[in-house]
């Protein structure tokens, strides 16, 4: 064992847990993307249930890891300012996967069906959302492992993707309300599209937070 590993055992433990957390976080997003594509191709059913189960498990594991990191941080594993930054970042990341899980939960519980003319836009929305989250995941890894430079670029990408997602979401909502569907159906689809669209908004908030943390760390 290296001397630094011995001296900073607590920090190394937090470091390992955070890396693990980010891996599970990304698995949640990847599960959402796969589950949604399965839903768009085959409708709600066993396959979507499988992905929902996977995302649910990953989200629970992430929650456990987050709590483990937080309890170690409360035991003063890092300096106060780094401690606060890590805790707030973790909580912000967590909100994103909670929302991702809730999208699939809605599909499963409501046995949701979407209109054929929605499929293309929904596929675009989910791909863009996953791409934004991928950039966010990378930015998080860079922050933790010491390469501040790429963070600004990745944050910009998340911001651009969020704008594109907003356009797709707005276009979908307009089409939903311009259609001949009954009001209850319109409201159900609106809720679903809004829920899905919020993921990129939340990702943008986390990205902004990461950017501030990376700037704050500089003297």
């Amino acid at each position: 064992m290296k001397l630094a590993d011995l001296l900073f055992r607590e920090q190394r433990e937090v470091e390992a847990r955070l890396a693990e957390y980010l891996d599970h976080w990304w698995s949640c997003i990847d599960g959402l993307r796969a589950g949604m594509h399965s839903f768009l191709e085959e409708g709600s059913g066993e396959q979507v249930d499988f992905y929902y189960g996977r995302v649910d498990r990953e989200e629970s594991t992430s929650d456990g890891l987050r709590r483990a990191v937080e309890s170690r941080l409360f035991a003063k594993a890092l300096l106060p300012e780094a401690r606060g930054d890590i805790m707030r970042t973790l909580e912000a990341f967590d909100v994103v996967i909670n929302r991702a899980e809730s999208v699939l939960r809605q599909v499963v519980i409501e046995r949701l069906q979407v209109e054929p003319w929605m499929l293309q836009d929904l596929a675009r929305l989910i791909d863009q959302t996953a791409e934004g989250c991928r950039c966010l995941h990378q930015a998080g890894c860079h922050l933790l492992h010491g390469r501040d430079q790429p963070i600004a670029g990745l944050v910009r990408q998340v911001d651009e993707i969020e704008s594109r997602c907003d356009h797709v979401e707005d276009a979908l909502l307009e089409r939903i309300f311009a259609s001949d569907l009954d009001l209850a159906r319109k409201l159900q689809l609106k809720d679903f599209v809004r829920r899905l669209g919020t993921i990129s908004d939340l990702a943008e908030e986390v990205a902004d937070h990461l950017h501030i943390v990376s700037i704050k760390r500089r003297v």
């Binding site: 470091e15 890092l78 300096l79 922050l143 010491g146 501040d148």
Partner: peptide, 9 residues
């Protein structure tokens, strides 16, 4: 350009 952990250490 240290990461959060190495900076802390």
């Amino acid at each position: 350009d240290l990461g959060v952990y190495r900076q802390d250490e």
